[in-house]
Design a protein around this nucleic acid. Structure first.
Lengths: 237, 237
DNA sequence: AGATCCTATTTCCTATAGGATCTACGGAAG
DNA sequence: CTTCCGTAGATCCTATAGGAAATAGGATCT
């Protein structure tokens, strides 16, 4: 028999499984643009998001903007009211933040333990690098100053969720992650607990380096307890 | 002084807090319609969801259909590829189902414990009623036959998540809940473990009646262990 | 001052049209 | 038999227009 290889079979070794994964239509671009603006804090909390206004600003028609906003709704960063349009989510109350930390603790402690069991060298190296960025990033009062700090912190937690090896836990964490950014302006001032956060992240990292899953879980729980406690202290003075 | 009451003050007793919460535009209606069709299993897994086709079928233009599908994407029940349209999510593999059960166990055990601490009489009564429906519902082979069973099971778990008192844990559970429906046709046959599920649900209920939070957590963990175990047994024969 | 009514403007929402892209099919060539 | 390629049809995606609702402001009345 010995059939000749087809064209597709031959090419499969050249492009192993990548049928243009990232084709991008206009609505995708608008979605990314809005997401970046929201994460960067370029909108005030509670601000109205006019569909036609955004369309004019981005030089597109309202249709893709509407689709992008519909996709953003589930993140919790924007909210919609029928016939009244979209608004940036309001700031988080102290009670809401406590509940968010409780939920994050549950998920992230599990993620830490699972990720530690599968920890590879490259992953641990990325964690270490995120902590290094946390250490060197400025922690000023305006958002543009501590945005690098915020991103380094976010990367640390996201990396662990991604490496837990459970896609469902990852998506569950991501739904909370969108809410986390609402906390950004909770205190309204710069980062006040950088040294605490750096120490606690390092403690998690050390558990990963030792491959001690129970310690990784414990360190992550301690970290989130600290996040919750310091938020209460900050808001009460 | 003795100022006269304003109009709003006078009306507040007539319409206590209801500023038309549920105004509904066409896109909302399409969204609900599609969600119901997906949950009812009226689409095959992997089937293409033509925007214009759905629009014709519902008698609307493609625009609101597009918006509704964009909102459904995050549930995991439909998937989108740029320039290729939407498809119903594929069936779940055995490995995915194991990971889903792992994630559910983490969240739902916590929810059970929290809900038990706050359990009121009405809530426990609703739980009891959902189990009763589980007991009486048919468990035939086609979906239309065991759809009531499925709904009763879903109600039980959702009620507990709603009464845990943490909105973030609830949304996290809901993101998984959308995935749960993908499991519906995992085995392809009817409900095979009704008596197990009823017994395990009852065990959770009894813990709620006693107000024993630790037992409620344990019973829920046992239930989800059973769900995972029975799925493996079903798929291997 | 407060309440009511009315008008003008803005914004949202839906339908429609047309360009761009994908898919399916069939014939021709190697 | 496989590959290539061109055509036709369906589908997606974006822009645009117009109806419907909400908002803002001012005039009038009590």
């Amino acid at each position: 028999m010995k059939r000749r290889r087809t064209y597709d079979e031959a090419m499969s070794s050249v492009f192993p499984s990548s049928p243009m994964p990232g084709r991008q239509v206009l609505a995708d671009h608008v979605h990314e643009e809005l997401l970046a603006a929201l994460i960067d804090g370029r909108f005030d909390a509670g601000a109205a998001l006019s569909i036609e206004g955004i369309a004019r600003e981005l030089g597109v028609s309202p249709t893709p903007v509407r689709e992008a906003l519909a996709r953003l709704e589930h993140t919790g960063m924007v909210r919609r009211a029928a016939l009244k349009g979209y608004r940036v989510a309001p700031l988080m109350t102290a009670e809401e933040h406590g509940q968010l930390v409780q939920a994050r603790k549950l998920l992230e402690a599990e993620n830490a333990e699972l990720a530690c069991r599968r920890a590879g060298g490259e992953f641990v190296e990325q964690l270490r690098e995120s902590i290094e960025r946390l250490r060197t990033a400025p922690t000023g009062g305006s958002y543009s100053e501590f945005r690098d700090y915020w991103k380094a912190d976010e990367d640390f937690h996201r990396l662990i969720a991604e490496n837990a090896g459970n896609p469902f836990l990852l998506t569950a964490y991501q739904t909370l992650g969108g809410q986390v950014q609402r906390f950004r302006l909770f205190a309204g001032r710069g980062v006040t607990d950088a040294h605490c956060a750096i120490a606690e992240h390092t403690e998690v990292l050390e558990a990963f380096e030792r491959g001690d899953a129970a310690a990784a879980r414990a360190a992550m729980e301690k970290h989130l307890d600290g996040v919750g406690r310091r938020a209460i202290e900050d808001s009460s003075d």
